[in-house]
Design a protein around this nucleic acid. Sequence first.
DNA 1: GTCTATAGTTAGATAGAC
DNA 2: GTCTATCTAACTATAGAC
Lengths: 195, 195
Amino acid sequence: MKESARGRASSAKRQRLMRAAAEVVHRQGAERTTIADIARAAEVPVGNVYYYFKTKDELVAAALSEHARQLELLTGRLDRLTDPRARLKGLIEAWVSQRDLAARYGCPTGTLAVELDKRDEGGLDVEAGRVIRLLLTWVERQFHELGQPEPDGLALTLVGAYQGMSLLANALRDPGVMEREGARLLAWLDSLEAA
Amino acid sequence: MKESARGRASSAKRQRLMRAAAEVVHRQGAERTTIADIARAAEVPVGNVYYYFKTKDELVAAALSEHARQLELLTGRLDRLTDPRARLKGLIEAWVSQRDLAARYGCPTGTLAVELDKRDEGGLDVEAGRVIRLLLTWVERQFHELGQPEPDGLALTLVGAYQGMSLLANALRDPGVMEREGARLLAWLDSLEAA
DNA sequence: GTCTATAGTTAGATAGAC
DNA sequence: GTCTATCTAACTATAGAC
């Protein structure tokens, strides 16, 4: 059978479960999401889930790596642009284009990190930090290529602004927050001098 | 008895439960916090909790109003300063002084809002938005008094920066994020022209 | 590999003694 | 008003048939 040939680590069902976990956990949060919720979304019978993921935490970890994968897809596309400033602008535009989802459920990685950071066991909090660092590092590289003197500080400011505007848009249930802050960030990028 | 004279709405035990709820929910999150956890922290027997709060959601709502009360205490103190710019600087200094707590558990109101926004019942999410709006409105008034043309946009930027730096400090477990971003915000305030 | 039935555990809520 | 004992529901995880 095709699945068994590829092994369970990469089977089609496992992939469906990962994607369902990412989506459902984004909407409901990790604590409120049951294995049954994910199984239903992935159209896999509940009992069968445990063949692919031994515990619920493994499914949450899978949701995190799914978000990391999505992020790498985006930065990979942006890397094709030659101007680092254009790459950063593309990033902001991608954020703003997701404004309705952000206003309803927040940033997928940011809100999951908030939830996992309330734990003191399991190490999933560290994993969430790693995904956020992935974004910070990529942004920092763009500022570095722009010849900015403190690329790491600027990366903190830009990613922090994104997490902040996502949280406010979510708490106020207003996607307009993402538009206003997004426009401000684009203008800010333009105001930075090239090296 | 003293308590019964004042009624259960304002008894000493009820107040202890409210404060315990605010603290424990900040550290563990609303979902992972059990009634027993709060009862223990407040030194009240579990069964007795239900005399003061009929459901767990009422306790979470109590935690939210406790945060609102803390916020009003802070802005009340800052309101004694005559210069609105000094008030905003005082706010930022208060945020930075809480950097260790923020790096471990995030902003009490912000992280609770994130968690409650994953629900679609109960209306606690709206309540969380209200508390955040309390802060936004106060900040907006300061920018208005400073004669700034778009005080609401500036308030979004400042409060968004706070929520963003708290989330990043928390996810990276690094209070230094609060110091760096706090210093940047102070310099930004200084760069704004007076009217 | 797939799926059903169920064991085992935890926590929210209530009844009722004091 | 206070507190103990307990009911009930929900969910994770496993055993085992197919």
